[in-house]
């Protein structure tokens, strides 16, 4: 079973066993930032920055 576990699953298990819930925000933020870097690639179709103001 252990062999098939994903990295995220292992991290979750670690938090559960060690009760280190304070580490959860780090994990969540890393996932969010990683996803945004992958999917939020730039292109010429980007909005103008001041339009986000």
């Amino acid at each position: 079973m252990g062999k098939n576990r994903t990295m995220l699953g292992e991290a979750w298990e670690f938090l559960k066993v060690r009760k280190a819930w304070w580490l959860a925000p780090i994990l969540i933020l890393l996932i969010i930032v990683g996803a945004l870097i992958i999917f939020g690639q730039s292109s010429a179709l980007s909005p103008f920055i001041y339009a986000l103001f």
Binding site: L36, S43, S46, P47
Partner: peptide
């Protein structure tokens, strides 16, 4: 950094119109 990439993620995934559209 997060807001600009969030906007681009929505555009790239087709959840929002691109700016010219």
């Amino acid at each position: 950094f997060l807001v600009v990439r969030w906007e681009m993620t929505r555009i790239n995934l087709g959840l929002k119109e691109s700016y010219p559209e």
